[in-house]
Amino acid sequence: MSLIDHIDHIVLTCVDLAATKHFYTEVLQMRLEAFGNGRIAFRFGNQKINIHQRGSEFEPKAHLPVSGALDLCFIASVPLDRVIAHLQCCNWPIVEGPVERTGATQKIRSVYLRDPDLNLIEISELLN
Rank of each mutant, 00 (worst) to 15 (best):
Asn37Tyr: 07
Thr13Glu: 01
Val83Ser: 08
Glu26Leu: 10
Val111Leu: 02
Val99Arg: 13
Arg101His: 00
Leu126Glu: 15
Ile123Gln: 07
Leu64Ala: 14
Ala34Gly: 11
His63Asp: 11
Thr102Tyr: 09
His22Pro: 01
Asn119Lys: 07
Leu64Glu: 13
Leu118Ser: 14
Met1Gln: 01
Gly68Pro: 07
Val66Lys: 08
Val95Asn: 06
His52Phe: 13
His52Gln: 06
Leu70Lys: 10
Pro93Thr: 01
Thr105Lys: 15
Arg101Trp: 00
Glu96Ile: 04
Arg31Gly: 02
His52Trp: 07
His86Asn: 08
Ile49Trp: 08
Arg31Pro: 00
Phe42Ala: 04
Leu3Met: 13
Asp117Ser: 14
Leu72Glu: 13
Glu33Met: 14
Leu127Ala: 00
Asn119Tyr: 10
Ser77His: 15
Pro116Ile: 06
Ala85Ser: 04
Pro65Gln: 02
His86Arg: 12
Gly36Glu: 13
Ile121Tyr: 08
Leu64Lys: 11
Ile94Asn: 10
Ala69Val: 13
Ile4Gly: 01
Ile108Ser: 11
Phe23Pro: 11
Asn46Phe: 09
Asp71Phe: 07
Ala18Phe: 00
Leu120Cys: 07
Arg101Pro: 00
Ile108Cys: 12
Glu100Thr: 06
Cys73Glu: 10
Asp115Gly: 08
Ser67Glu: 14
Ala34Met: 11
Thr20Cys: 14
Pro116Leu: 10
Leu80Asp: 02
Asn91Ser: 09
Val66Asp: 03
Val11Tyr: 05
Met30Cys: 11
Ala69Tyr: 04
Ala62Glu: 15
Val83Trp: 10
Val95Phe: 00
Ile75Phe: 04
Arg114Met: 04
Glu33Cys: 09
Glu122Thr: 02
Gln47Arg: 06
Phe74Pro: 12
His22Asp: 14
Ile40Trp: 12
Ile123Thr: 02
Ser56Asn: 15
Leu87Cys: 11
Pro60Ile: 04
Pro98Trp: 02
Tyr112Ala: 06
Asn91Val: 02
Asp81Arg: 12
Val95Cys: 08
Leu12Phe: 06
Leu17Tyr: 01
His52Ile: 01
His86Val: 06
Pro93Arg: 04
Gly55Asp: 05
Glu96Arg: 14
Cys89Met: 12
Ala34Asp: 14
Gln88Pro: 00
Tyr112Lys: 10
Leu28Ile: 01
Ile123Arg: 07
Arg39Tyr: 06
Gly103Phe: 06
Glu59Val: 06
Pro98Gly: 03
Gly103Cys: 09
Ile108Lys: 11
Pro93Ala: 09
Arg114His: 13
Asp115Thr: 07
Tyr112Arg: 07
Leu126His: 12
Ser110Trp: 07
Gln29Ile: 12
Ile121Gly: 07
Gly45Cys: 13
Val111Phe: 03
Ala76Lys: 10
Glu125Leu: 03
Thr102Asp: 12
Leu120Pro: 01
His9Arg: 09
Thr13Ser: 08
Asp8Phe: 03
Glu125Arg: 04
Gly103Leu: 08
Gly68Gln: 09
Ser56Tyr: 10
Ala62Asn: 15
Ile123Gly: 08
Glu26Phe: 03
Leu87Asp: 05
Thr102Pro: 00
Pro93Cys: 03
Gln53Gly: 09
Leu120Ala: 08
Val11Cys: 15
Arg43His: 11
Lys21Pro: 04
